[in-house]
């Protein structure tokens, strides 16, 4: 039985935006999302832009800044049989947990490196901020070890970020995320904007790090090919809701939710010239999502019940959950 490392329960994270006067609009970016992340797995989240996947990740990380507000639910880490409720922690406690237990690699992370400071000194900054007892010599050895692990030559340590290519910078950021031994990595679009050859290298690196450091990795991308290559389990989000979650093999072979089925069927593949169609309509606005199942206006199989009642995410096959009335009826 796999052990749960992060338990997300009924999470609701809204953006409350004031629009002149006293009216507030709330954008329901994450609405009633529950799922578990198992220890040592690579779990992927798929979704279109604006479906709430980045917001979900930020909330799991505990990085909540106005206008983002957690309206309900909990995120509990289970580290060495200690339970940590991340949403209840204060700023200083969060600072301890970040980088030591959980690291977040944000979107476009190639640009988070300070352009005026050498790579080595950026690593030293991180180490010193967390553990002052590490001596300079020891720290430098740690840095070289981590730079070597991500497959970069040691000269990189004394380089400035602009001397490195995009793929190399992404490797530096991954090394930085693991240097304090954090056990959970959250990677938001780690390979977008990289060329396919470099992308393959980065994905291999993530798998290698998982094996060597026994980490748990959450990967967000919109590229379904990336998930198929490295994930153990995949979760699909649509308009702030999680609609399906299951083992990667089943998701690609026998998707359950109509939305997932559409996504998989519409993927063009080399060697397959059959006509692919796209889903009609457009993703709904999260300010005022449709009643009932949020996918029903675009779903070819929608019934009356879909228009009025929001389906719960239920276990359909062993380890495979989906939120659809049509599946519940079976």
């Amino acid at each position: 039985m796999s052990q749960t490392i992060i338990d997300v329960n009924d999470l609701k994270a809204y953006y409350n935006i004031r629009t002149g006067g006293n009216t507030t609009v709330s954008v329901k970016a994450v609405d009633n999302v529950s799922f578990q992340i198992n220890k040592g797995e690579i779990i992927g989240i798929i979704g279109e832009s604006g479906c709430g996947k980045s917001t979900l990740t930020k909330t799991i990380y505990g990085s909540i800044y106005s206008p983002l507000t957690v309206v309900g639910g909990s995120v509990v880490y289970n580290i060495d049989s200690k339970k940590i409720d991340i949403l209840k922690l204060g700023r200083s406690a969060l600072n301890r947990i970040w980088w030591e237990i959980i690291s977040y690699i944000p979107q476009g992370s190639m640009s988070i490196l300070n352009p005026t400071i050498r790579i080595r000194d950026q690593f030293l900054d991180v180490i010193n901020a967390h553990d002052k007892s590490i001596g300079k010599k020891e720290a430098k050895e740690m840095i070289l070890k981590h730079i070597d692990r991500v497959g970069l030559p040691s000269e990189v340590a004394t380089s400035f970020p602009h001397q490195l290519s995009g793929g190399m910078k992404q490797r530096v950021v991954i090394a930085l995320a693991t240097i304090l031994g954090s056990k959970i990595l959250l990677a938001d679009e780690p390979t977008t904007a990289l060329d396919v050859v470099v992308q393959r290298g980065i994905l291999q690196l993530l798998s290698k790090i998982r094996e060597e450091l026994k980490c748990t990795i959450l990967v967000i991308t919109h590229d379904m090919g990336v998930h198929a290559q490295i994930c153990d389990r995949v979760a699909i989000m649509y308009a702030g809701k999680m609609v399906e979650i299951g083992p990667v093999g089943e998701i690609y072979k026998e998707p359950l939710h109509p939305y997932t089925r559409f996504l998989i069927q519409s993927l063009p593949k080399i060697g397959d010239k059959s006509r692919k169609i796209s889903v009609s309509g457009r993703p709904p606005s999260l300010q005022d999502p449709p009643r009932g199942c949020r996918f029903h206006p675009r779903c070819a199989f929608a019934k009356d019940i879909c228009k009025n009642f929001d389906p719960n995410i239920v276990l359909i096959n062993p380890h495979h959950w989906a939120a659809c009335h049509l599946l519940e009826a079976k």
Binding site: L203, M224, G225, H227, A228, Q229, V248, K269
Partner: peptide, 14 residues
């Protein structure tokens, strides 16, 4: 280029 294409099929991993 073709080898590095991430194919959307978990059975065809690199």
């Amino acid at each position: 280029l073709l080898e590095c294409l991430p194919e959307p099929d978990p059975e065809k991993r690199w």
